[in-house]
């Protein structure tokens, strides 16, 4: 198996998984929070937040990547702050790739969670309140279990988006083998060099396998959760 892919190709696969899992894990909690704010919140600027969250869905990925470069690059306001005060450097690092992937997948995650929050019967939460439950407890014991399938679906979407992200990543953190060269960048590179077709095809197959696997795992988890939730 290990000699089926070249060491460089293996590196790209491992890096892609690391980037995608990091992007997904880092988006979950903020994704749920933003979904809750958008779905339940009544505050000034809600509309603006909604637009901001959805921008990556409609903007060209290259534009998102460039915006990240402007903001989070070494000389960008946020990037400079992170580098000077916290020692975190994102540009041209795999962490930057994860950030780009997280941003691109964020609207998908938020949408999935929002839909599931919308589907929760408000009376269930109301009833918990009248039975003596604090709002935080209501969320943890009533709302969260009910929206778990939506959260899982959102996580898979976010992961799949991250596995396939190309434009924003390559613009923000470039295409450095071993640091920021994910599967899509590697495929792109291989198609640009003579004799790279074999590698491109192998990575394509790996990409398909990972995507199918992710879908399968999510279906399986969702079914388990649903069975536990609804006793079917």
């Amino acid at each position: 198996m290990s000699d089926w892919l070249s060491p460089e190709e293996w590196t790209a696969v491992r890096l892609s998984l690391k980037v995608a899992l990091t992007a997904m894990a880092a988006s979950v909690v903020p994704g749920i929070a933003v979904a809750l704010l958008l779905e339940r919140g009544r505050f000034w600027g809600r509309q603006a937040l909604d637009v901001l969250v959805h921008l990556p869905l409609v903007l060209p990925p290259v534009v998102v990547g460039y915006a990240l470069l402007l903001g989070f690059g070494r000389r960008g306001p946020i990037g400079a702050f992170l580098a000077d005060h916290l020692g975190i450097v994102l540009s041209f690092r795999w962490t930057g790739a994860a950030l780009a992937c997280a941003v691109m997948g964020f609207p998908l995650l938020v949408r999935a969670v929002r839909l599931s929050i919308e589907a929760v019967d408000r009376k269930l939460e109301d009833a918990a309140g009248t039975l003596g439950a604090h709002p935080v407890w209501v969320f943890l014991v009533v709302t969260l279990p009910l929206i778990l399938p939506g959260i899982l679906a959102g996580m898979v979407l976010s992961f799949a988006k991250a596995m396939g992200e190309f434009g924003a990543t390559i613009t923000f953190v470039s295409n450095i083998p071993g640091e920021t060269q994910t599967i899509p960048s590697a495929i792109y590179t291989l198609t640009q060099v003579p004799g790279g077709e074999g590698g491109a095809l192998r990575l394509t197959l790996v990409s398909v396998a990972i995507s199918v696997g992710a879908l399968w795992v999510s279906e399986w988890m969702a079914r388990r959760v649903r069975r536990r939730l609804l006793a079917r």
């Binding site: 019967d121 009376k123 269930l124 109301d126 009833a127 309140g129 009248t130 039975l131 003596g132 439950a133 604090h134 009533v142 279990p145 009910l146 536990r228 939730l229 609804l230 006793a231």
Partner: peptide, 20 residues
């Protein structure tokens, strides 16, 4: 005073039972 501190219990038309 929030609902939780009013020492009441409400029964809803749709029952609002927890499916899980």
């Amino acid at each position: 005073i929030p609902p939780k501190d009013r020492d009441i219990a409400m029964v809803f038309q749709s029952y609002a039972l927890y499916p899980h």
